[in-house]
Design a protein around this nucleic acid. Sequence first.
DNA 1: CAGGATGATGGAAGCGCTTCCGATGGTTGG
DNA 2: CCAACCATCGGAAGCGCTTCCATCATCCTG
Lengths: 337, 337
Amino acid sequence: MDREVTLADVARLAGVSPATASRALGGHPHVAAGTRERVRRIADELSYVVSPDASRLAGGRTGRVAVVVPHLSRWYFGALLEGLEEVLREAGLDVLLYRVGDAADRQHFFRRLPARRKVDAVVALAFPVDEAERARLEEMGVEIVAAGGQVASHPYVSIDDVAAGRQAVDHLVHLGHRRIGMIEAVDPEQRAHQPEGRSRAYRLALADAGIPVEPELVATVEWGADEGAEGMARLLGLREPPTAVYAHSDEVALGAVRTLRRAGLRVPGDVSVIGIDDHPLAALTDLSTVRQPVREQGARAGRMVAATLSGGEAGEGVLLPTQLVIRGSTGPPGDAR
Amino acid sequence: MDREVTLADVARLAGVSPATASRALGGHPHVAAGTRERVRRIADELSYVVSPDASRLAGGRTGRVAVVVPHLSRWYFGALLEGLEEVLREAGLDVLLYRVGDAADRQHFFRRLPARRKVDAVVALAFPVDEAERARLEEMGVEIVAAGGQVASHPYVSIDDVAAGRQAVDHLVHLGHRRIGMIEAVDPEQRAHQPEGRSRAYRLALADAGIPVEPELVATVEWGADEGAEGMARLLGLREPPTAVYAHSDEVALGAVRTLRRAGLRVPGDVSVIGIDDHPLAALTDLSTVRQPVREQGARAGRMVAATLSGGEAGEGVLLPTQLVIRGSTGPPGDAR
DNA sequence: CAGGATGATGGAAGCGCTTCCGATGGTTGG
DNA sequence: CCAACCATCGGAAGCGCTTCCATCATCCTG
């Protein structure tokens, strides 16, 4: 079993001291250009890689980043993670995965992790980080980047939820719908006060169209397809049901569609349905939606992390564009084609 | 910023040397029971946790396990990972995530990771590990556990793919179908020679039922809903199309259903469709399937890892049971209800 | 051309832990 | 009652790296 290649090996081969070798590799100043080159070349030839453990112990970087995510089995989070992981891996950073669901998890996470200085940065995936938590991490010298959700005063990459929601609702309005319902999903595991752009978009769009907002047309459910189905049932129970429904996400919309079919109603003949995300199954089920670039958000967040850790600037927040995708689940009202 | 609690602190408080403290915490022999107790109590009070970095550097464990997974955005892998992560986190182990897709990734992974001794164990999620790779890890003292796929001669937790497939196909046979098609999905990123139990099950079930296997009734596609749709189209193009179709997984089955609907055929009136997995959307779309306990497989794998790392035995392989779930996508042939 | 400033490098300490090697003192058996 | 043992514990040496500090060799300025 061949021994590990150490810094000392590289230094010896390059004819310098370990101290200089370390500086050369770390890109520190006060190292002659020639020396730096030589050390780097030797290191490369030996395919030397610093030991994260030793480095970290001695006060350096760990080469690891924590990724915090509330769910793993939902497509959205998986795709986000996939984009992120790829970039991070290519940047030579290891990904430490933490699923943090409820409040207890959160508390535990924020108390434990930074104290052990296991990572150089944390990426919060669709995961609101509050001010106190942010301060805690900052204090410990850990960088933060958010993807799929904004963190006040921190680099993030996300979509404009309000704009996305408006694309969806405006589409329904343009089709001529006046009685538009919303199935609003809340995540029970997340803190309640999430500023819900998608819901706000609904009210804004209706207001702009001069349509009064009727509270009974808003069904609030927990996130999920079954819950979406239930929300739709609620809407169907109204004296005057909506002719179109805007769902918080595609999974919720898919649930709504099922309820409609079971009720013998045609989509979009009797009721139009639109979601948000462009989940792979949306294409399959011919669901109109607003596409957001999920993998891309993860990848961008990854690049931001890599950039800050290599000394550069992460840049400020980025909002990626969304795009209305019209499929077969939306049409003019009363169009019993 | 309060300093980290170190082993030295614990030792001092307990009135012993760091050496003894380390042994006490590590559960080594040759430590008086009383001393061990005392040290542990003090450590607990101070909520001391060993620094993985220092421990690893000094030749101990890292407290980390690598999880290798070919995909992240598919429900199956996410669910597997969710179960695994939860158990590992509770056991105090950190999860290092590696997505390893194609052959190049694999090679890179197996060459790099173990050499840097970053982890104590690796869990391969639905990821065949070949003999050479296994040997490489073993040689470096890294434990291996597989979930959702067997690894010869290593602890694993999985389902019996052949049995699951038979449950599905037998169901179609029992309903009276004689002309049964199969949409077989292969993962382009995985090595080709995966021993496909689900496909074997098809041939076995037909043989048992005395139905000749006709090659034209087997459509092989890449994994995915769209691909499933395409496979179904192929089957529909046959002179005599099948009256029932067995799909490799629910996503594939869902694609098949879409093709059938577009073709104006009723499910199950004209064609029955069954998948495997019990994907959340299967319930939603009323798809018959064979349920497998996905999260549970991940969790079990996690427990196996935790067990081996704490010195116990992981136990041999475990096959979890699957269960036929009859929904509305399967029915007797020619039942145009 | 001298004195200080600046740049490049090596020496050495030490991060927090594990473990080898001995030292110590109590046991046991002949 | 003494030698041989053994269980228990402390001392100390690193693991591989970063960084502080000291040391020279240059280089500039006046």
